[in-house]
Nucleic acid binder design. Structure first.
Lengths: 195, 195
DNA sequence: GTCTATATCGAGATAGAC
DNA sequence: GTCTATCTCGATATAGAC
């Protein structure tokens, strides 16, 4: 991976983020050195500091980018029925998270390694995302089409169940992503007592 | 925490494990130093090596102990109905995991930091535990009292959903552990279409 | 069994040449 | 923008005295 000197501003930045993402997911933030990241990109360790003030900022930038992308990609179709919105949410959540299982992993795993301020930023984005689901559940209860005892608990239960898929699902396994998605959709529907 | 010299064999071992558990859960395995663990116990770093050959073995011992305890504590009442066995499993899982949320956390989090051999040991214990639940689901399907499309998927979904409670539940919150447990029990029952 | 002292290593980050 | 060289620090683990 060694390379000669030269300037590659536009391309090096994204490559650093990509390398860091993979390495953090594989070994954990604390276990990965700036030298390892640099080696994967093909630059020297010192060069990384043209792109990030320090290692912590690099981690935060990865998590923040992931959450921003999640929130802007999440469907927000307030006109459909609660049942349809729930199905759309579940399918979106599974597809989005399966495609980014490394980012999902470190977004949960490395929260401890954020400063208190950075942690608060990520946490509030996560809560905003959870609220999208809870709103669907609440609307369904109000409309009398869901049977849910506690919308907050059910929100947490559904999200944990769906995100858990990323810990074992890999392409080329026994079931396709669509099959998994359909089965989970069905379980969620039943769990909320959808009519 | 500094203390004078002396021999405390019977008590130091457990205290090291306890200190390591808390610190690993709080900061992550790679981020915790042997000096930190020693300081929390009140000994010098060198003394730890009377109890563990190295840091890796200390981690493995914690995870192995956790899984052994889980498997021996798990209920195994093969005579009851699938519905009752499912309810017993769910309640057991929640109670056991809530009481050990730090061990649960590192058992999932720090798998990457195990050697390949140690990893295999923990993984096979985890699979053995999952099989307990899958057997209940299969028996319920065979008896015609559960409506489950794929027992393996449903097993993973239920376990992820239940274990997820440990990420947010803390004593003294809005709901008691028993209330949470009852609500989740209900969701699981509905998700498997229990009669 | 615990201490102090230390060997060895690699970490994050910076300085200045090109 | 990247390189090489380096500062400073703290890590794991070991050795030998008590």
């Amino acid at each position: 991976m060694a390379r000669t000197q030269g300037s590659h501003a536009q391309i090096t930045g994204p490559r650093i983020r990509e390398a860091a993402l993979h390495l953090f997911a594989e070994h954990g933030f604390a276990a990965v050195s700036m030298r390892q990241i640099a080696a994967k990109v093909g630059v020297q360790a010192g060069a990384l500091y043209n792109y990030t003030p320090d290692k912590q900022a690099l981690l935060f930038s990865l998590l923040k980018g992931h959450m921003d992308e999640l929130l802007s990609a999440a469907p927000d179709q307030t006109t459909a029925s609660p049942q349809d919105r729930l199905e759309t949410f579940v399918k979106f959540h599974i597809e989005f998270h399966l495609q980014r299982h490394e980012a999902v992993f470190i977004s949960y795993m490395e929260l401890r390694n954020l400063t208190a301020e950075n942690f608060e930023v990520i946490e509030s984005l996560r809560r905003a995302y959870e609220n999208r689901l809870e709103t669907i559940l609440r609307d369904g209860v109000a409309a009398g089409v869901f049977s849910v005892h506690d919308t907050k608990l059910t929100t947490m239960a559904i999200i944990a169940m769906l995100t858990g898929i990323t810990t074992w699902y890999r392409d080329g396994g026994r079931l396709s992503a669509d099959e998994v998605s359909a089965t989970y959709c069905d379980m969620v529907r039943k769990a909320v007592g959808a009519l």
